[in-house]
Simulated assay, not measured.
Amino acid sequence: MEKLYREIIELAPDAILFADREGIIRLWNAGAEALFGFTAAEALGQSLDLIIPEKLRARHWEGYRRVMETGVTHYGKDLLSVPALHRQGTQLSSEFSIVMLRDEMGEVSGVAAILRDVTARWQKEKQLKERIAALEKIASQAAG
């Protein structure tokens, strides 16, 4: 059964990673390599800062430390949408869910995340909102 779990994780097209209590990457699948551009050898042992845009790091670590201390998160069932960082320095839009992992004593040992790149969808939605706003402006000018 363990071989099956390993294959599912490794072959999944979505990025699957695990970070320990300190935010150090301990698992990085092929989907994560494709999404972020870093090989597993480059990512393993590195801080999550590797994929977190600099302007969001303080907020991320505040929340991460709180979750590690309390063992409580709002994102166990809901998708979280956040910008992420590609190896080339470009920003992408991602959605992810997390799985809290605990040790034998029930203490949080870290967080697994399953991520997907939604940049193309986000850009389409942004363009549609801009078009709607422009049309609403034209309609209000024509009515007024």
Rank of each mutant, 00 (worst) to 15 (best):
R57I: 14
G71W: 11
R65L: 06
H86F: 11
L4G: 02
K126V: 09
L115R: 03
W28K: 00
Q141D: 13
A41M: 12
R116Q: 11
L56F: 10
L17A: 05
D49S: 09
E69V: 08
M68W: 07
Y5L: 08
E54Y: 07
S109K: 15
E69S: 06
E130A: 15
A139V: 08
S97Q: 14
D103Y: 15
A32G: 04
G31K: 00
I52C: 00
A139W: 05
H60R: 02
Q127H: 15
I16V: 02
I8V: 14
G31Q: 01
G63C: 05
T70L: 02
K77R: 14
R102Y: 14
V72W: 12
A113L: 08
I98D: 00
K129W: 14
S47V: 03
A142F: 14
E130S: 12
I98V: 06
L27Y: 00
L85W: 00
V72F: 13
T90N: 13
G63I: 03
G45V: 11
G37P: 05
I16S: 00
L92W: 06
K77P: 06
K137M: 04
S109W: 11
I51E: 01
A142M: 11
L56P: 06
R26P: 04
E104I: 08
R116H: 10
G76F: 08
P53A: 01
K137A: 09
Q141W: 12
I25P: 00
E136V: 12
S109H: 10
L92I: 13
D103Q: 10
I51M: 02
A30F: 12
I98M: 01
L92P: 01
K126L: 15
A120S: 09
F38H: 08
G76P: 02
M100S: 07
G106L: 12
V108L: 15
D20S: 05
Y64H: 07
D14I: 08
D20N: 05
H60M: 04
E125S: 13
V111W: 01
L17P: 02
A32K: 01
W28G: 00
P53K: 00
V99G: 04
F18V: 10
K129L: 15
V118I: 14
D14M: 04
V67T: 14
K137S: 07
D78F: 11
D78Q: 15
A139T: 07
A133T: 09
W122K: 12
W122D: 07
I114L: 15
E10V: 04
R116T: 13
Y75C: 04
Q88H: 09
L44I: 15
I98F: 01
N29P: 00
V99P: 03
P83A: 10
I25K: 01
V108K: 07
E130N: 15
E62Y: 04
A112Y: 10
L27I: 07
T90D: 13
F96I: 03
M100T: 06
A134I: 12
S47E: 01
L135H: 07
A12M: 03
L50P: 00
R87F: 04
L128N: 11
R102P: 05
E69N: 14
L101Y: 03
K126R: 11
S109A: 15
S109N: 13
R65H: 10
G106F: 11
